[in-house]
C-alpha cells in the first residue's frame, strides 16, 4: 500500500508545472524514504531530478519500493481539478499499480473529490550523476535568474555564464546585438532571500542554451533562491530547494566554437 498526503496541495501543482515542459512521461519512484523522479528530455540535453522526503507528507506510507509510470500531461489535467488550498492525497496499490488515486479535500473537509489516473509502463534510462565538487557555486534570488534568462532571450538563444570571485556575468550575443547582466555578491542579513553569494574554487566560463534555462525557471515559485553549480566541461546544476526536498535540473553545456 502506498499513501502520501500533502497538506500544501499547491506545492504538487507547482512541482508538476516545473517538470512537465521538459518531460512528458516519467516514473515516480516511491520508497520508504520518499518519492523521487529522474527524467531526461527527448534530446538528452537536460535532466530533471526531483526528491520529496517522506517526512514532508502526513501521513506517508510505502511498504515496498515501486514505480508509478505517469503521463505528466494527463496528471496535469487532473491536478487542475484540485483547489490551490486543497489537501492532496496520492494512493496506489503497490503490488498491482495500474492506476493512481488522487484525493482532493478542501480545508473545511466538506468537499472531497477523487480521481483515478491510469498508469503506464515507462522504460526510462537512468543516469548515474556523480557527486561533484563544483568550481563555482552561486546562490541568487530565483526571480532574478528568471528575469535574466527572459531578458537575454531577446538577444540570443545562448548565454555564456562567467563566474569569478567578484561577479557572475551572463552574456548573450545575437544578430541584433549583444547584452550582458553582471551581478555582484551581496549579503542582506535581514533579507537572506535577496542575497547573492559566490563560492569559487576557480573561474568558470560555460555556454548554455537559454531555451532550456528558461524552462528550468519554471521552478521559480518553489523557492526564493536558486543555486547554480558550474564546473568546466561539466553539466550545469540548477537547484531549487524546498522544505520537503528539492528539484534539480542538469544541462549539458555547449561545446567547441
Amino acid at each position: 500500500m502506498f499513501e502520501a498526503r500533502l497538506t500544501q496541495g499547491a506545492l504538487l501543482k507547482r512541482l508538476l508545472d516545473s517538470v512537465k515542459e521538459l518531460v512528458t512521461d516519467a516514473n515516480f519512484d516511491c520508497s520508504e524514504t520518499g518519492i523521487s523522479l529522474q527524467a531526461m528530455d527527448n534530446s538528452h540535453v537536460a535532466l530533471v531530478s526531483l526528491s520529496l522526503r517522506a517526512e514532508g507528507f502526513n501521513p506517508y506510507r510505502c511498504d515496498r519500493g515501486f514505480s508509478l509510470g505517469v503521463n505528466l500531461n494527463s496528471l496535469n489535467k487532473i491536478m487542475k481539478c484540485a483547489g490551490n488550498e486543497d489537501v492532496i492525497t496520492l494512493k496506489a496499490d503497490d503490488s498491482s499499480a495500474d492506476s493512481l488515486c488522487l484525493l482532493f479535500e478542501n480545508s473545511s473537509n466538506e468537499r472531497v473529490s477523487e480521481y483515478e489516473l491510469k498508469l503506464m509502463d515507462i522504460d526510462q534510462e537512468h543516469l548515474s550523476i556523480p557527486e561533484t565538487d563544483y568550481d563555482a557555486t552561486v546562490m541568487m534570488p530565483s526571480a532574478e535568474f528568471q528575469r535574466i534568462c527572459r531578458d537575454l532571450m531577446v538577444v540570443s538563444e545562448s548565454v555564456t555564464i562567467d563566474v569569478s570571485k567578484d561577479e557572475i556575468k551572463f552574456t548573450a550575443e545575437g544578430e541584433l546585438g549583444t547584452g550582458n547582466v553582471k551581478l555582484k555578491p551581496t549579503s542582506t542579513i535581514d533579507k537572506p532571500e535577496e542575497s547573492i553569494t559566490i563560492e569559487l574554487g576557480q573561474t568558470v566560463s560555460l555556454q548554455f542554451s537559454l531555451k532550456y534555462l528558461s524552462n528550468f525557471t519554471r521552478g521559480t515559485p518553489l523557492s526564493d533562491q536558486v543555486m547554480l553549480c558550474l564546473s568546466d566541461n561539466m553539466p550545469l546544476l540548477v537547484e531549487y530547494k524546498m522544505d520537503i526536498g528539492y528539484i534539480r535540473y542538469y544541462l549539458a553545456p555547449k561545446v567547441g566554437d
Partner: peptide, 14 residues
C-alpha cells in the same frame, strides 16, 4: 558556432 552537448557524454547510464 558552439554545438549542444548531450548528457550521455558526461553521465553514465545505470
Amino acid at each position: 558556432a558552439a554545438t549542444q552537448g548531450r548528457l550521455d557524454s558526461f553521465f553514465t547510464q545505470v
